[in-house]
Amino acid sequence: MTEPRPDPVPPPGAVRTAAPLFAVDGVEVRFGGLVALDDVSLAVAPGSVHGVIGPNGAGKTTLFNVCCGFVRPDAGTLSWHGEPVRDLRPHKLAGTGIARTLQGVGLFRGLTVTENVMIGADRHRRAGFGSALLALRRSDRDERALRDRALAALDELGAAHYADRLPGSLPYPVQKRVALARALVAEPEMLLLDEPASGLGEDEMAELGALIRTLTARMAVVLVEHHMDLVMSVCDRITVLDFGKVVADGPPDEVRDDPAVVDAYLGEEAVQ
């Protein structure tokens, strides 16, 4: 099952003892009477790939939305570099060093591929409104710098060829790559991937898996995904949610054999 990985996998113990980059502690989210997340905790080690899996409606996306500030938890804390994060807002995320891809592709359809990625690089901007209004050199230089960053990111994902196209005209897998480039160009310390493999074929998925492993040199990756093959092969650690609760947490091999997981998730798949 375990495919050869570009990076040596740190032993499970090492991941556990390393100070977490990002931690969710005892988070609870209620929508009216419905408990979406109940005492959920997870810790993401720097440079690791952390998978979040679970059956439909288990609360995976809600957990992501908590991590992004779209949903305020009713209880529990988030911490970043060991510091508690209060008042997390989506627009502060990029500045903090967290990037997220969306479940759909969420590309700006009126912007070219390059411009889409340049928006992702927006946190690196230097020029302000005044220099844009007067088209000062500063603004030109800034634009060129952002464009170079964007093209480099597209190049890395093999999408530079589509730089001047509009996203709507591209095949879905290419759109996903552009969306990923838009997240990567921000140079985050942690990348949240919401179902990155949906709509991809076998080959593309393998490519994605290899890419995610190469990213660990630069950032931690948190992954919500349905494709078990991908999750099992790329993740260093997996948190399994079921009905808003953590039912298992550990390295892939451990999680796979956990009866609670088999019951909650794999069992359901096997029945299907």
């Binding site: 989506p90 990029a94 700006f108 411009e115 928006i119 927006d122 946190r123 634009e143 952002l146 921000a186």
Partner: peptide
Amino acid sequence: RVGRVWRAVRDDEVAAELA
């Protein structure tokens, strides 16, 4: 950049906010 950001907000608020 200002014009680009305006268009981005027009096209997809969530993605723009995340950027």
